[in-house]
Amino acid sequence: MPQIALDPRKTPMMNAGDKSLEKSLIERCKQGDIAAFNDLVQRYEKRVFNFAYRMAGNYDDANDVAQEAFIRVFNSINTFRGDANFTTWLYRIVTNVYLDERKRQKSHLHTSLEDYVELDENTVTRQIEDGRPTPDHVIERIERDDLLHSAIQELPDYQRIMVVLYHTQGKSYEEIAQIMKLPIGTVKSRLNRARLALKEKLEPIRELFNL
């Protein structure tokens, strides 16, 4: 069987000038320079917003998460020592903001993280009801991307974070391991399981889209 490597990670490499500009913006932020903070936000807003959107599942919540994450960056920029990449630190903050928000919602809702339980080696989502649309419904009103997006939302938090970081943010296994403070082997195996879970969720619609 011929092997075709899918997508070697494509995190854009920063050149020396970019790196130096980023460092200078961070230093100016530490001095309370609001214009530098504005530039820093503009530099990363698209990546952070997209990450938040795929995590939170909708535009409004993504806006809240992304905004709160940047404000947390501003308030704690003095604790960033530069040992890690700034983006690794930034993604960790976004992840934490998102998880905090989920916890806050959990205190208001009864159906939340408890719905995701570890049964054995494989993490299985315990569905309260099968909310997947019927095939007719699919043809009428939902596009493939929306279905995939919905399927991602059904993953447990930690799987979703990894899938989004890897597949929509272009992060490597090493970077995800740093962001989530996990061994790289754990990241790889959990991502494989997450993809398998997604595959299962997408099975009913695959034929409809001739995939």
Partner: peptide, 8 residues
């Protein structure tokens, strides 16, 4: 599935 993820 992998390819779909990359095309989001």
């Amino acid at each position: 599935t992998w390819q779909m993820l990359e095309m989001l």
